[in-house]
Design a binder for these strands. Sequence first.
DNA 1: CGTTGAACCTGTTTGC
DNA 2: TGCAAACAGGTTCAAC
Length: 278
Amino acid sequence: MPELPEVETIVRGLRAQVQGQRITRVVVHQPRIIHGSRAAFRRLLPRARIACIERYGKYIIFHLDLGAHSAASWCLLVHLGMTGQLHWCRPELPYLKHTHVTFWLANGAQLRFRDQRRFGRLEVIPAKFLSRYFTRLGPEPLEIPFTAFARLFAGRRAVIKSLLLNQSLLRGLGNIYSDEALFRARIHPVTPAGSLDLAALHRLYAAIRRVLRAAIAAAGTSFSNYITAQGQPGEFQFRLRVYGREGQRCMRCGSRVKRTALAGRSSYFCPRCQRRPW
DNA sequence: CGTTGAACCTGTTTGC
DNA sequence: TGCAAACAGGTTCAAC
């Protein structure tokens, strides 16, 4: 579910409400959601202070301050999978279904992790392993310069949509924003990436930046599961131009939006604005 | 290298 | 109305 803009929105909300807080108690309702060392999870999180919170692609990194308990520094990594939610609330709030982990905070509030499909994961790892943990992730789409961006696709025969979803090339894009960027750049999703000319690469680069920034400004896209750290839905679902609009009129040219399956996932595109390369 | 399908889960929508 | 299939924002792995 959550792609870069949703995770960024959650991280900003968490910074405002839980950064600096000490964890006083952790309750794991669904142990299978915890990956890596469960012993480290149980031992280190109670009494840890959340020193700072970062986003890395679609991952959330909580840097822990363990004080005198540990000389090494540790992190809590959270990936939300398809339906994960990480939200701050009062302890009186009734437990909603699929709440897998509850963090009690020193200020009396709680941070709860819910995940209907359980594709999400939480893991405590030493900070020194972070770079190794993330070796397979490419650069941030909002940070990479254009020349490096263009190089990612040179000589690649794979279709552009697959490469946009591939986190080892760029970290953070998912199915929605890949389709939205390709639509805005007027590139057909099955175009071989290496065949994109300089003009097309420029359009794609600009489109990715525009759509991600606009989505962050709108607090992300909510269909059913995604909510911000404050428990609110995003607003970008009202600004989507192709994703989920099969059969509806293209907002640019009025043609019918089509849907095609690519590696088992839906790709939405306008057959007129996004011409096939042959 | 690139693609596909399956696996990990639960819930909703669609079609017969 | 009932039931099965299809589908849902992600990642990883095996097979070809």
